[in-house]
Design a protein around this nucleic acid. Structure first.
Ligand SMILES: [Mn+2]
Ligand SMILES: [Mn+2]
Ligand SMILES: [Zn+2]
Ligand SMILES: [Zn+2]
Lengths: 156, 156
DNA sequence: TTAATTTTGGAAATGATTTCCATTAAAAGA
DNA sequence: TCTTTTAATGGAAATCATTTCCAAAATTAA
């Protein structure tokens, strides 16, 4: 018998519980917000998107939870140069959507791209293997970003 | 006749002047500090290294100058996750020393590496060409970083 | 020199993130 | 279900890197 809609065990519950953390309404809400978009949300963005449905989740909890999720590897934290940290799920319920970023230094807009992603990842893995050996450094993940000026900013 | 030691026109003067900026003692001091190391200095680090020789250069000037240098493309600004921005010359008087970074998420130590750098740069350029066309985005530079745990942190 | 303009440092403001701590809620057992 | 243990919470206050302001100083051009 299937559970009622929205009550089923979520794909991420395992990892959270395995690490000794509890499943709470706030945490559900935060992951729900991140799952619902491809945007790169700041902590306040998350707060704004959650607040109607979960008025009793405070900003502090959001910072704390995002931090926890980053440590668990469920969320990536980025600095796109606009003065606030931005977050994105590493993978959704449907699986990974591996991509890198194009960052406009003018307006701070961010574009996800996947072109050449396989080549990039392949090279990165090769490099990782070499580096981790040479420096005895355990590599968990990588970051690739291109910086420049977006269409909108160019036409000004 | 050669100029007195330390008084010669510096490699970076051209770019600064061309952009209408003046050459000042503070600016000399800041570039001097960055030139003297491969470390990734924060604004306060620069202040500390300069303060003896140039006691009248304030922290505000350092922030302002670093910002200017980043805009001129003479300096890179990084976020290695320790809560403060870190800076590094894009190229020294001897020319470019293109490298990428290995960042320890434990202790925030940063390792410069150049292994596979040519392959990386070649692939990045190929990708850049494609992306700039596809998204009509002018790409100025790129960032590659690997995150993980360094030797010291591993042995604990 | 003088005048016009940029640069400056220090104090104060800003704003994202953290810290504190008394209260609440989740989970595990009885 | 009730109880006990322990983790999680939110709101106020603190933190601290960076910015903003502005009158004074330095630089450049005339
Ligand atoms: Mn993205
Ligand atoms: Mn470096
Ligand atoms: Zn833009
Ligand atoms: Zn380390």
């Amino acid at each position: 018998m299937p559970c009622r809609k929205g009550c089923g065990p979520q794909w991420w519950h395992g990892k959270v519980k395995d690490c000794g953390y509890r499943i709470t309404a706030g945490r559900e809400a935060i992951i729900e917000a991140l799952s619902a978009t491809h945007d790169h949300l700041s902590a306040e963005d998350v707060y704004a998107r959650i607040h109607n449905k979960y008025p009793n989740v405070g900003l502090t909890t959001i910072y704390r939870t995002l931090d926890m999720l980053v440590n668990l590897g469920l969320v990536f934290k980025f600095d796109f140069g606009d003065g606030k940290a931005r977050y994105e799920l590493t993978e959704g319920p449907k699986g990974a959507h591996h991509h890198h970023h194009l960052v406009c230094t003018g307006c701070k807009r961010v574009i996800d791209y996947t072109d050449f992603i396989d080549d990039e990842v392949e090279l990165l893995h090769r490099t990782e293997k070499c580096l981790s050996q040479k420096y005895n450094f355990r590599i968990d993940n990588h970051l690739i970003q291109f910086y420049g000026t977006c269409t909108e900013c160019l036409s000004k």
